[in-house]
Design a binder for these strands. Structure first.
Lengths: 341, 341
DNA sequence: TCGTTTGGCCCAAACGTTTGGGTATCATGC
DNA sequence: GCATGATACCCAAACGTTTGGGCCAAACGA
């Protein structure tokens, strides 16, 4: 506990009080053990350490960053933090960052390329040591520019180009959903495919469609509709699907929230979820299991993706070679596809 | 657009290229209009500006912060970002911060006092100019310590002591919920009151209970149960309420997610939401309207709370006197209390 | 004509660190 | 008795800004 109030205690404060030079104090407090040993005698080290935490010394990060040209900051760009998926991924990032002594700047880009650019510049202006993008567009033009500037970065949640990324194996997730619905005998199915620029939606849809194709069932293009990754988006998309003459017996939404929207739309059409129509979501957000009709969904390891993304970035910042990772999804079967227990 | 790659372009770069002194360049680029006018001739100002954005000059924030002792950083502490309520508040904060040229550090404290302390120290170590707490405990002991250190801060979402805070008028929100249920004739009601240390839950519950008392109805203590602000928490709490002999005809949950959990529990008990049992939530999160049975809830201006919180902090950092703000809630009536349309 | 002002710029110190070099002292080996 | 090598430090420059105070020349006022 420091009893001082507004005293900016610096290395100089300590050095003067101990009759030492600031460089000596600096080495003792911050250098690697091997170096700090030869920096001062055991007794001196003790004295320094003692006074340092008596006065509650905290190194000034601006001075350190200025001198070392490293900020120990990483910038995180996400579409929106109020999307629980991204928020959870970010929690993983932050958790891992703290373990590495790094701090994070997060910022919302709303999936608007212009904002994305502006916020990236802003974050770069803060001299971050690396970046994590959770909002990569499938066309990686923008990222190529960043790469050219030599700033280390990784992608999470979505992948793009050959940039290092930590994602869920979304294609496999799509397959899991399809296999499940196939096993229940659904042949007339539809997909809420998410935003067309997000690899998550693209891959999940592809895995789903391919699996149906493998089973000899072609899903017609009009049964695959794009929609925002949220409940209102899912509702609108589902309404399109339910408006036609041939109503699908199952809907695969590439996102739990879109699924919830779809459920709302289906109910408005007088359909019972899990009996009249099956719905599968994606991500297994905490709500899925708590819904009135619990939602069958493909679990993606969101927090873990964040953690691994940060780790990958750390290695990249150290100059190591890194490889993208694809984390395994898991199917969670619930009443929205199997009907009441 | 800067074509340079890894060129750290500094004031010196510009000054040398123009044959000027760095101080002149500095004044031209950063001083207030009135000062920059007398810093150099119109022609020189032009030359400097031109070269600056040709080379893509960006001031080094560490150097600036070191020199000015201001970081233009604010720290934001929240229980968890994966709670959409806090995430949305944070979006408001970030939005407003960007408008003021400030950057934000957010961090999760999981409502654990120990983590709260540790993360606050961490953020303070980063030399933020101010703090926003979204995780204030009703007993404000910890905050008193921060105040004593002279760090400007404001609270959002929850209030505590007399510290400046931007909250929803939660008491009034509780009243709205109660008036609504009273008007529907509900006399046997129960409350999912949230965490006992959060002013949000406390005030909402108080407003609700007082309004019932005004109507001559005392809600017995065993009908008021505390629970976490999430769906599983709400489920557990609701199960307690539904286990008794006298089942309430309506439940007021101080949070939409708790309400969703309660809905799940009620359904498990074979109750139809909106007909057998009414449920009211709080916050009007985007999901509320999309639920299979749309949720009646009290809307709180989350994003606006964030924006105002940041504004309040800015004024505080300028040394102005500020006052707490209470934002008006609004009742959103839906099928979970009125039954199918 | 000779101050005085003002326009336009430069000087230098300071913010708090880190780090590649000293240097003085002392013990050791021979 | 004298290099040799530790040991335990100190020195000083540098990172990129900001900012109070110069200084010189031209314009101005009387």
């Amino acid at each position: 506990m420091n009893t001082e109030n507004t005293s900016p205690v610096t290395l100089r404060t300590l050095a003067d009080r101990l009759g030492l030079h600031v460089s000596t104090v600096s080495r003792v407090l911050h250098a690697k053990p091997d170096e700090s040993l030869r920096a001062a005698s055991g007794a001196t080290v003790e004295r320094i350490r003692k006074l340092a935490d008596e006065l509650g010394y905290q190194p000034n990060p601006h001075a350190t960053s200025l001198r070392t040209r490293r900020s120990n900051l990483v910038g995180v760009l996400v579409p929106r933090l109020s999307d629980i998926v991204l928020a959870t991924i970010y929690e993983g990032i932050e958790e891992a960052a703290a373990e590495h002594g790094l701090s994070t700047f997060v910022t919302n880009t709303r999936d608007v390329p212009e904002v994305q650019r502006a916020r990236t510049e802003m974050v770069l202006g803060r001299r971050v040591d690396g970046l994590i993008f959770g909002d990569a567009y499938a066309d990686a033009a923008f990222l190529a520019g960043i790469a050219a500037r030599g700033v280390p970065f990784v992608l999470v949640s979505r992948h793009a180009g050959t940039h290092p990324a930590v994602t869920c194996d979304d294609y496999q997730g799509g397959r899991l959903a399809a296999e499940h619905l196939l096993s229940l005998g659904h042949r007339e199915v539809a997909v809420l495919a998410g935003e067309p620029y997000a690899s998550t939606g693209i891959d999940r849809t592809a895995g789903f469609v391919d699996t149906y194709a493998d089973a000899g069932i072609e899903i017609p293009p009009e049964k695959i509709v794009h929609s925002p990754f949220d409940a209102p988006g899912g509702r609108v998309g589902a309404e399109r699907l339910l408006a036609g003459r041939s109503i699908p017996s199952a809907i695969f939404a590439v996102n739990d929230f879109a699924a919830i929207g779809a459920i709302g739309a289906a109910r408005d059409h007088g359909l019972q979820i899990g009996t009249d129509i099956a719905v599968v979501g994606f991500n297994d957000t905490p709500l899925a299991a708590e819904l009135p009709v619990p939602l069958t969904t493909v679990r993606s390891p969101m927090r873990e993706m964040g953690r691994r993304g940060l780790h990958l970035l750390v290695r990249l910042m150290r100059g190591e070679q890194v490889e993208s990772q694809r984390l395994a999804p898991e199917l969670m079967v619930r009443a929205s596809t199997t009907g009441p227990a």
